[in-house]
Design a protein around this nucleic acid. Sequence first.
DNA 1: GAGTGGTCTAGACCACCCC
DNA 2: GGGTGGTCTAGACCACTCG
Lengths: 243, 243
Amino acid sequence: MNDAASPNYQPLYQQIKTLLVSRLAANEWPPGTALPSEIALAQAYNVSQGTVRKALNELEIEHMVERRQGRGTFAARHSQQRSLFQFFHLLSDDNVRELPVSRVLSCATGEASACERRALNLTAGASVTRIRRVRDLNQRPVISESLSVPTAMFPGLAERALEEVPNTLYEFFETQYGVVVAHASERLRAAAASETDAELLGVSAGAPLLAIERRALNLENRPVEWRLSYCDTAHHFYLNELD
Amino acid sequence: MNDAASPNYQPLYQQIKTLLVSRLAANEWPPGTALPSEIALAQAYNVSQGTVRKALNELEIEHMVERRQGRGTFAARHSQQRSLFQFFHLLSDDNVRELPVSRVLSCATGEASACERRALNLTAGASVTRIRRVRDLNQRPVISESLSVPTAMFPGLAERALEEVPNTLYEFFETQYGVVVAHASERLRAAAASETDAELLGVSAGAPLLAIERRALNLENRPVEWRLSYCDTAHHFYLNELD
DNA sequence: GAGTGGTCTAGACCACCCC
DNA sequence: GGGTGGTCTAGACCACTCG
């Protein structure tokens, strides 16, 4: 499949992996559907089953596919479970991990600001759609959140009824727009509550809040969403496992 | 090696992995030293090389060993690199990642508080050794830190000259006391600066600080250290990659 | 029972490191 | 040149799922 002496040599299983990622990104196997079996892929790519297996195992580690013994290999979906464990890190003081309930305050398009252009890799004049929402945990407001997405990726999002935008956003992006969020990076800071955030969260202005800035990327590592969340950490904490 | 019909069946490579972890925990191969080769281990455990390989690869993912082609497999050490990428998550606004310089303020033993007993899994009346320090990034104080360790694990730590306690603590724990920090979990909150922290960090009292509570575990998952860090995030942020 | 992924083996060859 | 880990193959058997 390649010459070992070639300067840009890559292991076979890496090449297979790259091919599979591009096919996933092209939505050849929409989230939740089955990929061909290891044996079928091995025959198609003319490699051994073990090589395909290694590629698929790595894709599973990177949350791009799910494998289940006896069933098959499936393109990863944004289940509640996944949102909860991969993307949501706020736990209550008694260690309960639950998804928040979200109330959308506004949803509108506008011209991307300099920050948004930088975060989302957009050119000057590009349009973004912005969502403001408050998220409750245990019936009390805990997160004040603003997020921006490129309008070109999500046409008509702003026009949808506010009630149509559900709690689990990434699942919605996936099923309604075919946009798969694969990775994200978060930057955390402490910040004093603004007047509006204080009101929304029921704390006093200037109270310390945990500010989380997130950039989410799709399967091809292109930016999909930029969000800024202000969290009241009086009864919750952000958990990060270091291993 | 076991009966497939046994109720507590475990794959061979998992059993090998468990055996290797216990030998690492027993300090049979001190950090930095070489483990036997795959072939030697395979013969010793009477399994194939592939099975040992799978166990070792998983141990590498969990940062318990380092493998280098042509050289061998080595018990993981707490290099600066590792401290920087596995355990230190504060970056400057211009995305520079560097280890802080630490100044120890005090180091003393005392009876464990209820919090410390809970965090470190100690019985009533147990002794802990506490270190207070300030950590500078780019010549300016950014972190005010208090940490506690069980005195039984680190005998004589409090009596060492303050200058003897170096910047990279985990490396020091490892080389001086044979205590290997393998994992940690961090809980982040926003908090208002106390009078003393404000003074140490050169911010005004009540300013929002990022509070990080860390519990560090050894190879056998026993708690080794409990620390509380207050970080000034005016010019730095805590980075967390979600993937 | 047929098909899937998971484990385990044995052996070949390659890339890398050090003597 | 000899030893190490890394890749790749081929084949066996097992565990699981579903019809």
